[in-house]
Each structure stands twice: as C-alpha cells, then as structure tokens.
C-alpha cells in the first residue's frame, strides 16, 4: 500500500504548528498504525529530518499512552486504541490526516504528543480510596453484589487515553471523570469518600479548562474500552445527591 499522510508538526509548546504531507510507500496491511509511523520515522531519520513525535508504550491496547486523531476521529476508524488499529482499515492511495488531541487542557508538547497531566490532577482530587494498612482482608469479608462488581469493573477499564476529550465537541473530560466516580462509587470501599469525591473531581475538571458535557455521546462512541455513556448520568446523580446531603466538604 502507498499512503499519503498529512501530519501535524509542531516543534514545541510555543511553536504555532502546521500540517506537513509525507508519502509512505510499501506499507503492509498487517502493520499497525504506529508501525506505519515507525516506517515514516526511519525514512525521516535517514533523510536527516526530525522524526514525528508520538506517544506510545505497550502497543497492546492496554496502557492508554498512544492516541491521535485520524481523519477526524479519535483513534481512527476502528473503536480501539491507535496501536491496535491496522493499516488494513485503510485503502491503497488513501490520504490520512493525523492530528494530536485538541483541547486546552491537553497542550501539545511536540508534534502528536500532548500533555495529559490534567487527568492525573483530576484523579488526585478524589479518584482514590483511603484504606488502612495492615494485613490484606479476606477476599470474601466484604460481599459485593455481582451486578455492582460488573459495573464497577466496566468503569474501571478506563485507560485514561483521553479519546473522550478529543472526540467531544465541547472538549469535556466528563466520561473520564464519570468512569472513576462510577468505578469507586459502586464498591463498598468507595463509600466513605463518595460524596466528597464527585464534587472535588468535578471542581478539578472545571479548573483544568475542560468544557461541559452536553450528552452528545461522541466520547462513548470512540472509547477504546467501551466506557458506557450512562456513567455520566451516575456522576450527575451522585453530584446532586452529594449537594443535597451537604456532606460534600
């Protein structure tokens, strides 16, 4: 396959950035999207040009490091991470546009790499439980209904890649925040801090300059882990409950 790439190049945080067109030849349909970028970078290195910077780590679809907007869709045409997207999803001769996540809360560091520490600060604001140290309790000491466990687990599969923010027309980080609120809120260990958690995490979310959610659903549609949209309603329910109970502080 021969592919034409339009890639966002930006030297650093203060650079204005621009789209640059590259031709990538002899691409195998079995290559992953990142491997195709590797081929491009080898070529650029040989030509003494600066390779395209992009985030990646496990390349198994479980770490959440990779992620670019491909032809206007976060992680590209398949509902998976960019590393698990293969060139067979494209056709010979395609022109593919590759851009970084676009959000004020995710400033571009270089080319396709964005700084996602805003997510870390949201987690720090409440995405944890406080547990006493000591011997591990027996696994069956604290019964959890199966439906709650399943729901918590579904929400806990979030890998924090940021595709929800990239896809959202409002650049909102609500699906990410809601996934953590739902994950911990479904479990007995998450109850003591439940009221404070939702308020603190949302305040941090707004402080990081993410937009507000308008329930459009693009986030859940592109999420590689299939975090359900109804987690956002769970967050809203917890928030209203927390404000009504006055236990937020």
């Amino acid at each position: 396959m021969n592919i034409t790439l339009r890639v966002w190049r930006q030297k650093g945080r203060d650079d204005k950035g621009r789209m640059v067109t590259y031709k990538v030849e002899d691409v195998s349909p079995d290559m992953s999207f990142l491997e195709m970028l590797d081929v491009l970078n080898e070529k650029l290195t040989l030509e003494d040009e600066d390779p395209v910077a992009f985030d990646h780590d496990c390349r198994e679809g479980i770490c959440g490091a990779c992620g670019v907007v491909i032809d206007g869709v976060a992680h590209g045409p398949e509902t998976t991470t960019t590393c698990q997207l293969h060139m067979r999803s494209f056709s010979d001769g395609d022109v593919i546009t590759v851009e970084p996540w676009r959000a004020k809360a995710f400033p571009v560091v270089k080319d396709l790499v964005v700084d996602r520490s805003a997510f870390d600060r949201i987690i720090q604001a409440g995405g944890y439980i406080s547990a006493p140290t000591g011997t591990a309790p027996d696994a069956h000491a604290m019964p959890v209904p199966k439906t709650d466990a399943d729901r918590a687990f579904d929400a806990a599969t979030c890998i924090g890649c940021g595709a929800c923010v990239a896809a959202c027309p409002n650049a909102s980080g609500m699906l990410f925040t809601a996934a953590k609120v739902t994950h911990l809120g479904m479990l007995p260990q998450g109850q003591p801090e439940r009221e404070a958690r939702v308020v603190n995490m949302l305040n941090q979310h707004d402080e990081e300059d993410f937009g507000g959610c308008t329930n459009i659903g693009e986030c859940a549609a592109v999420c590689p882990k299939g975090i359900p949209l109804d987690t956002i309603s769970q967050l809203n329910r917890d928030l209203l409950g927390s404000l009504a109970s006055g236990k937020a502080e």
Partner: peptide
C-alpha cells in the same frame, strides 16, 4: 467555556454518532 476548551480546531472533522439535533 466549550469554545475556550478547544482553542485549536481540528482540520479534519467527522461525526461518529452525534445527531443533527445534538449539534
């Protein structure tokens, strides 16, 4: 707030599932 949250727009934009009503 939403406009401010995305200062640089995407060059390519494709809707995945949002409806005419929602946008």
């Amino acid at each position: 707030r939403a406009n401010r949250a995305r200062p640089v727009r995407y060059q390519a934009r494709k809707r995945v599932q949002r409806s005419y009503a929602s946008y």
